[in-house]
Amino acid sequence: MKEEQLAEELICLEDMAKIYDTGALKVLGLKRVNLTIRRGEFVAIMGQSGSGKSTLMNILGCLDRPSLGHYYLDGVDVAGMSSDELSLIRNKKIGFVFQSFNLISRMSALKNVELPMTYARISRKAREERAEELLKRVGLGKRIHHQPNELSGGQRQRVAIARALANNPPLLLADEPTGNLDTAASLEIMELFTKLHAEGTTVVLVTHEEEIAAYTRRIIRFRDGEIISDQPNEPHRPGIAAQVEKNTDFMEGEG
């Protein structure tokens, strides 16, 4: 029963708190958060700036360590890990998608996508093949050799998503992924997340926009470092996306 539960749970925060020590005073970033996210979920974490959602994002992404409590990712407590161990976790288990895309500007789309695999010590040939395949999957098969500055915002974010998927991580973590995009491109990106979710990827999205959160299946709201609500959400979005969702609904069972 316990093991089954572990297998089900991708993220488990137990009494996790984050305290920032600024020298003069200690600021409580997060207060005793308890949260479980299962595999295959599509979750939005919402809140105003200062609500603690960025802190949570950093901890979930293993960029930062909790001050107190435990964080089990894929069954492993990462709370006490060294920074190199965390690097390894980020490399294998987490795919990041940032608001400002964060592509390396002097590298082609292909090279950017290859990067996480380079750090995973995957051979050049295998890397290139997989990067190309991923770029095709996000609809950029014809632009693999373009530099980031030759791509539109939406295209850049798709490269970033392809890069996040490179090592096939169990968790896709997106921080305001549409924050720098126009409406059309935002729609495009959210459709892509929906598709990835439908294919079984766990997606955790940090946003302050209701329209973006509306795409997800579960919305967790933060205020002053605490969860104030955690509710399932019935995704409502226009066009083809709804059909994709409908087609995959019965496969996943309850969402």
């Binding site: 960029l63 190199d84 690097s87 980020r90 964060n102 990067l115 750090y119």
Partner: peptide, 15 residues
């Protein structure tokens, strides 16, 4: 920033 990106993608201190 590039260093930050690389680290977020799994680059270790040594890398």
């Amino acid at each position: 920033r590039e260093i930050g990106i690389r680290k977020s993608l799994g680059a270790r201190t040594k890398d």
